[in-house]
Design a protein around this nucleic acid. Structure first.
Ligand code: ZN
Ligand code: ZN
Ligand code: ZN
Ligand code: ZN
Lengths: 158, 158
DNA sequence: GATGAAATGTTATAATATATCATTTTCTGA
DNA sequence: TCAGAAAATGATATATTATAACATTTCATC
């Protein structure tokens, strides 16, 4: 069994650092501006491997001394999701950093209801099953939402 | 290709009637009370093959002359979803009537972004792909959300 | 440095959802 | 059949999530 979820106690600074580096690249490639606000929001999202709500981000920014209003956060989130740097988790109304923003993909999200962590999979068997089912009923896919709630391996065994 | 979506212009009264009959049975089997309010909400949801929001239901009840507050609607929705008579569509914050409430299933929802109709599939290949992926990463499934947005066959071809 | 486009600030409000306590309805068991 | 308990609904208030509209600032380009 390969655990999708990061090891507890891993060097998380490296996750953040590498995510930032990837984000820079993507923005660069798209000629999009990775402004201070967008970077702050992106970094806050990467402070954990959990999904973060817009208002949690708002509070965190406020705690940092910024005076920020909801539209500011939602704009940053819109920018980040459109570039694929962040995904929205529909069943949580929350946002989660993507660790492969450089390639198009239909992701699937595992959400642990115990520890709150989220992991993104890009599983071809799932994607293909969805594509095939759609094909079978003459449905043209525009977007998919696959969110799986339950217990991560750590939480199930400890 | 078998179209999951009902034919346009089909005899929709039969859908509603049969859904009500099934709901009665389920409530009976569960010793749950299919009260007036619950029946009204359920029937309103079945007035279309679209997903309906809580506040649309509230407005519809108000239009019928009821004086109803949000908690009343949310309570009815909670009851109906817990019994599996209705499913919540996470990506729409809306509710959709299930046409097979008598058997446990992991459903998948096709949502047409053109006509707004929703169709529920119970596709074993998709469910199994999800189960297998979860197994592969040591994840214990509690609930799944599979929502596929795009164009239904009618809307894609007309 | 002037200009226009993009981003952010600001204010207000819309849309979705729940907490809490009061009242009514229904069920159960003397 | 009626008292008491349980379930459902009513009523009020408020929490949470999200967007509309317009003002101001920042930034790239000339
Ligand atoms: Zn990490
Ligand atoms: Zn966990
Ligand atoms: Zn119908
Ligand atoms: Zn359609």
């Amino acid at each position: 069994m390969s655990d999708l979820f990061p090891k507890k106690g891993h060097d998380h600074d490296r996750c953040v650092h590498s995510a930032l580096a990837q984000a820079e690249k993507v923005c660069d490639a798209e000629n999009a501006r990775f402004t201070d606000m967008r970077r702050k929001v992106f970094t806050l999202i990467w402070q954990s491997h959990k999904a973060v709500t817009a208002y949690e981000l708002l509070d965190a920014l406020t705690a940092e001394g910024q005076r920020v209003q909801p539209p500011t956060v939602y704009r940053a989130l819109e920018f980040l999701t459109e570039l694929g740097l962040v995904h929205r988790i529909e069943s949580l109304n929350a946002y989660f950093g993507c660790d492969r923003p450089d390639c198009e993909h239909l992701g699937q999200y595992f959400i642990c209801t115990d520890c709150g962590r989220v992991a993104e999979a890009v599983n071809e068997e799932m994607s293909n099953a969805v594509r095939k089912a759609a094909m079978g009923v003459g449905f043209t896919i525009q977007a998919t939402t696959v969110e799986i709630k339950g217990l991560c391996h750590d939480c199930a065994t400890h």
